[in-house]
């Protein structure tokens, strides 16, 4: 990437002190997102993907806190801002779309009130202009008869339409980036496709950077430009979508893609690949590479030392197999066929 990234996260660590010890739901996470780019963050529950999103927008519930690392928005640090300053950035410079649209909408105000307020506050327009902008924004997200629907309350919209309103709201202040945390999880398949397409189109048109957090590999494959796979608080693989989803390097990514059932191909009679075990709890993250107890290709280094992100093709993978010292291990077996 030649231009400087919109969002740049470096060695981010989030800690939650509890009486049973300090939890690290996010551990040394680094990534960049460029303007107009969609970075998909995938992982299973407990991987730390949502916590990473919350950390970026400064919405970690106490006693959790950012213990170290940096978050930069267009070059300026935003991880150490005061809550009041952060509040000004959220909504204005970073738009947010969550799984539950009602979490972002005030049920007591009409959709128009909320849109107009955001536009007035952040863009400094007068009321009449703000209303015109609001109607245009609703039309843009595909709400039919926007000039009439603008005076409806959130509960008068269906689930999919509500999520469209939230997208309009997230984009109303023309933010530099949008964080979408499981934006389609609560929606039906046929509606989900519409929302994903809408989000991608609008962000591309406006050149906003998008951080798309989801557990759905299919949504990631179709939407993201680059993908970060998270496991037990760390990014285990990051790279272009074709590579990470189509030809993953990290054994966890390999397992994840193999475990995802598909509607295409002739795999119907084949067995799903399965990864043994489950995501470790935050209190008992294994030593070394956190994935090693479940990894079919783990060897002696893996339980001693956590691997850094190493180059593998055009992506980076946190796996000792990608280290030049261990190339002989890679040759001995090509990618694992059946992980069972």
């Amino acid at each position: 990437m030649t231009q400087s990234p919109v969002l740049s996260v470096t060695d981010l660590v989030v800690e939650i002190p509890t009486r049973r010890g300090v939890l690290r739901p996010v551990d040394s996470v680094s990534f960049d997102i460029a303007a107009g780019e969609v970075l998909g963050v995938v992982g299973e529950s407990g991987a730390g993907k949502s916590m990473t999103g919350s950390a970026v927008i400064g919405l970690i519930d106490p006693p959790g806190r950012i213990a170290s690392g940096e978050v930069r928005l267009n070059g300026a640090r935003i991880d150490n801002l005061r809550p009041s300053e952060m509040r000004r950035i959220r909504g204005k410079r970073i738009g947010m779309v969550f799984q539950d649209p009602m979490a972002s909408l005030n049920p007591l105000l009409t959709v128009g009130d909320q849109l107009e307020e955001t536009i007035q506050v952040h863009l400094g327009l007068r009321r009449a202009e703000a209303r015109k902008r609001a109607i245009a924004a609703l039309e843009e997200v595909g709400i039919p008869a926007a000039d009439r629907r603008i005076d409806s309350y959130p509960h008068e919209f269906s689930g999919g339409m509500r999520q469209r309103v939230v997208i309009a709201l997230a984009l109303a202040a023309e933010p530099e980036m949008v964080i979408a945390d499981e934006p389609t999880t609560a929606l039906d398949v046929s509606v989900q496709a519409q929302i994903v397409a809408l989000l991608r189109r609008l962000c591309r048109e406006r050149g906003a950077a998008v951080m798309l957090i989801t557990h759905d590999m299919g949504v990631i494959a179709e939407t993201a430009d680059r993908v970060a796979v998270m496991y037990a608080g760390r990014v285990v693989e990051i790279g272009p979508v074709r590579e990470v989803v189509g030809a993953p390097s990290h054994p966890y990514s390999v397992g994840l893609m193999g475990a995802t059932p598909s509607t295409s191909g002739d795999a119907a009679s084949e067995r799903l690949k399965q990864i043994p075990g489950a995501m470790p709890r935050l209190l008992s993250i294994p030593s070394g590479c956190a994935f090693h107890p479940r990894c079919p290709r783990a060897f002696d280094t893996c339980d001693r030392e956590a691997p850094p992100l190493l180059r593998s093709g055009s992506s980076l993978a946190a796996c000792w197999l990608c280290s030049p010292d261990h190339q002989h291990l890679v040759q001995s077996a090509t990618l694992p066929e059946a992980i069972e």
């Binding site: 398949v189 494959a221 179709e222 979508v241 995802t260």
Partner: peptide, 13 residues
């Protein structure tokens, strides 16, 4: 429509 809308692992972009 359902088949068309189902997200696919091989349908990049």
């Amino acid at each position: 429509m359902l088949l068309e809308a189902a997200p696919r692992l091989d349908a990049f972009g």
